[in-house]
């Protein structure tokens, strides 16, 4: 009996201590990790889809509270006018969430470009969503207010061969982006006006 109690106590104390330590560390590093992601993953993606912008989209960003989620928006300035926002949305892929950076032109509601940011898809198959520029190029010009689908689901996007789940997830992420965009459009327009002042 004494042995049993000892086992339970030791395991409990050890697990509690480890949980506490990790929670503390996670809080401590969260800001730094976000900064690194911005620099190495989101940064290049944003630069790519907002190519030709005369401002620095990573510096010109703002946050909007959507329910209890805080969303980051990056703005792009073209021909002297801020009219494009880029933001990240997610879709459930084969190996977890796929992050998709979507840039939308505000006056036309059209997608300017998309780029996969974070993913854990199979190299050579699902990972092609990020590695093959031809795939993400298809999204250009789609209206953000309509759901995006692959050709198998009567949509317009040609799926990557052998990676239908990944292709669907990217489409889902784009559709989610559309929902967020429509919901937050009034606030977005307000913020953009401030940038154009």
């Amino acid at each position: 009996m004494r042995e049993l109690i000892k086992m339970v106590v030791v395991l409990t104390v050890l697990a509690a201590f480890s949980g506490g330590l990790l929670a503390g560390l996670r809080n401590g590093t969260a800001a730094q990790i976000e900064k690194q992601q911005l620099e190495f993953v989101k940064g290049p993606a944003i630069k790519k889809i907002l190519e030709g912008a005369s401002n620095d989209p990573i510096a010109d960003r703002f946050k909007i509270l959507d329910g209890d989620v805080e969303r980051n928006f990056f703005v792009g300035k073209f021909d002297g006018k801020v009219d494009t926002v880029a933001f990240e949305s997610f879709g459930k892929g084969y190996g977890g969430d796929i992050g998709l950076m979507v840039a939308v032109k505000l006056d036309t509601d059209k997608i300017v470009g998309v780029e996969v940011t974070t993913h854990s898809e199979t190299p050579g198959l699902g990972a092609m969503a990020k590695d093959d520029p031809g795939f993400s190029a298809q999204f250009k010009g789609f209206s953000i207010t309509e759901p995006v689908k692959v050709t198998n689901d009567d949509g317009k996007v040609n799926a990557i061969s052998g990676a239908t789940i990944t292709s669907r997830a990217v489409c889902k992420a784009a559709t989610n982006a559309g929902n967020v965009y429509q919901k937050l459009k009034p606030q977005l327009s307000e913020k953009i006006k401030e940038f154009n002042k």
């Binding site: 330590l21 990790l22 560390l25 996670r26 590093t29 730094q32 990790i33 690194q36 992601q37 620099e39 190495f40 993953v41």
Partner: peptide, 13 residues
């Protein structure tokens, strides 16, 4: 997990 978090924070590439 300590290694994972620290690496994410300071050696992201």
């Amino acid at each position: 997990i300590v290694v994972e978090l620290v690496m994410q924070a300071y050696a992201y590439p």
